[in-house]
């Protein structure tokens, strides 16, 4: 018992002294689970090649990451926030209120969003309009807004196979959902002419019409997946009628089980997304706390290494994993090298 007490007090003492003495020497990164695998790859190669410790990378989602990022400066806050969407005005303000005034925004590539189904099922050729008609809560039939009557893809478009509609779409906390709503459902709503009808019905209110367009049916034919893409994949394996919506990188790792549908006639691939032909993609970002450069060792080197041609360029490890390289990477590299912060005019 005496030894135990002695150990306990020694440990407590050590704890106090270690907290006082330790300056954090490894980078802390957190944020989007879409960016997470890329950040892992960069951290791994960074740790192997430089004398800095391997950065610690956490997931948690874009919003959680940025919230943590904006908690202030100092060793107890993270240095880099990964995001699958741009930082919002509200978040910039929260950052500024907490003293995080200098943020470097880095866009390092694109993520394609694909529509994948079981490899043994029929081929699908989609347009945004098909998705809108399949998933909207209300559609116009003979000039009346009625609850979506479509239950099979052939109801939506007679050219499509007679397979029941079962869409596995990302839940509302996913950054992917936002892009899906904007670039697929909203586009489809406009293309079908329902947007104008909703606008007319709402007395010319565009916001109300947009909300009406983007309302997703809740009768069980569209399933929100709040977990990760692995959950979508498991559900796809269980129900061969289902069609899942997820990132290109995830599909690239599972091409032996899944097939992808074309969207507006374009097959998703790294090439078609970087050329802009494939319509459903989004830029990926990470945000660097400039105030930590020079205090936390390796922060700038990490950011520069992340966007270097060897990592994020064509044929690099990130592209290999499914990232669509940014054609304007050279510009990003220069901005990181010059530590250009947001709102500094360039």
């Amino acid at each position: 018992m005496r030894i135990l007490t002695a150990t306990a007090s020694a440990l407590a003492l050590a704890a106090v002294s270690a907290t006082a003495a330790s300056a954090r020497d490894q980078l802390q990164v957190a944020g989007s689970s879409t960016v997470l695998p890329y950040a892992n790859i960069v951290a791994e190669v960074f740790g192997e090649n430089f004398d800095f410790p391997t950065p610690v990378v956490q997931g948690g989602g874009s919003s959680a990451g940025l919230k943590n990022f904006c908690q202030g400066t100092g060793e107890n806050t993270i240095d880099v926030a990964n995001a699958s969407r741009q930082i919002r005005e509200k978040e910039i303000k929260a950052c500024a209120d907490a003293g995080v005034t200098e943020i470097i925004e880095v866009q390092f590539g694109y993520d394609g969003i694909v529509f994948a189904s079981d490899i043994n099922g029929p081929d699908f050729v989609f347009t945004p309009e098909d998705w809108y008609k399949a998933l909207a809560e209300k559609v116009f039939v003979d000039g009346e807004a009625v609850a979506n009557p479509n239950t099979s893809w052939s109801d939506v478009n007679p050219d499509m196979p007679d397979q029941k509609i079962l869409a596995l779409i990302p839940g509302t906390k996913h950054g992917t959902r936002e892009v899906f709503e904007e670039k697929v459902i909203m586009e489809g709503c406009e293309a079908s002419g329902d947007f104008d009808k909703f606008k007319e019905a709402a007395g010319g209110d565009e916001d109300a019409a947009e909300d009406a367009c983007m309302a997703i049916r809740t009768d069980g034919l569209s399933v929100d997946i709040d977990g990760d893409y692995t959950e979508t994949l498991a559900k796809l394996n269980n129900d061969t009628d289902a069609i899942g919506v997820f990132g290109l990188a995830f599909y690239e790792q599972n091409t032996d089980k899944l097939q992808v549908a074309t969207m507006s006639g374009v097959t998703p691939s790294v090439e078609t997304i970087s050329s802009g032909e494939y319509p459903v993609s989004r830029p990926l970002y990470f945000y660097v706390k400039k105030q930590h450069i020079g205090i936390i060792p390796g922060l700038k080197e990490y950011a520069e290494f992340f966007v270097s041609d060897a990592m994020a360029g064509n044929g690099g490890p990130l592209a290999n994993y499914g990232l669509v390289p940014d054609p304007e990477l050279a510009k990003t590299q220069k901005a990181v090298a010059d530590e250009v912060t947001m709102g500094s005019g360039s």
Partner: peptide, 18 residues
């Protein structure tokens, strides 16, 4: 729940490393 590749040092200092 983080991606950690570096081994922490021996305790007690290692207790404070990721």
């Amino acid at each position: 729940v983080a991606f950690v590749r570096d081994f922490p040092d021996a305790p007690p200092a290692g207790l404070f490393e990721p």
